[in-house]
Nucleic acid binder design. Sequence first.
DNA 1: CGGTTTTGACCCGCGC
DNA 2: GCGCGGGTCAAAACCG
Length: 245
Amino acid sequence: MGSNNGSSICLDLSIGTLQFSNSCIMKQHNKVNKLPLIHGSTKMEEKVIYSSQIEAEMVDEMNRVVAENRRLSTMLAAISERHRALRAQVLEMMNSTSSSSSTKPAPKRRNREGSLPYLESVNASYKVNCSKEEVRETRPRISRMYIRSDGLVVKDGYHWRKYGQKVIRDNPYPRAYFRCSFAPVCPVKKKVQRCTEDHSVLVVTYEGEHNHVQPLPVYFFFFLLIELSGLSLLAMSIPSFSMFD
DNA sequence: CGGTTTTGACCCGCGC
DNA sequence: GCGCGGGTCAAAACCG
């Protein structure tokens, strides 16, 4: 395709099947009907030449979109698979933690979220499995993660606002309280505390579920910009019909 | 200047 | 009822 010489986009014309809507082709055909008569050729010949050129360009564009769609589908499948594996891994870790500490006595005080995590085996398993429907209805969804980190910063993709810090009994390290930055619209809270047994491990407790999409990182917008620029360049490389109007 | 963090005070539930 | 301990509030400080 001569008009796409400047583009770096690689096209695989063998991919996918093409199905054009008749209305789309007719739309372009109607524009061709408005072409002025060029010296040395009949108007009908000019129409045929430009119609075939436009059609070829549309085929290329459709092939490019189909290939892009397949590439994104493959990426999505890979991400989903990885997410499933990580989730299974976390659940396995949670279950092993709960089984290893099941013989420890329950805390004397009320068994709230503030209690030490490694003593809350029963509570933790409830939180992960959410098997008791009646409790699930009255309490916000709670999950717990164990992360090895130097600081109290946990990069989970969401934006948090710290609203409190407290020194908890039997733990020399303070517990930090966070709210989602979208509060009060988003009710999710987060507690971050160092594990007393292994100080390099952070115990992160999430309460509730986000009722909004995860804020996209900056590089996403960068790639989006590149993608849009690429499309606009491609669009620019396709001869405009308006010049013949 | 607006958003975030810090931190002491206050609130509330639970055990005694 | 009182004390303890976790959770939250809110004003001041901080920061980009």
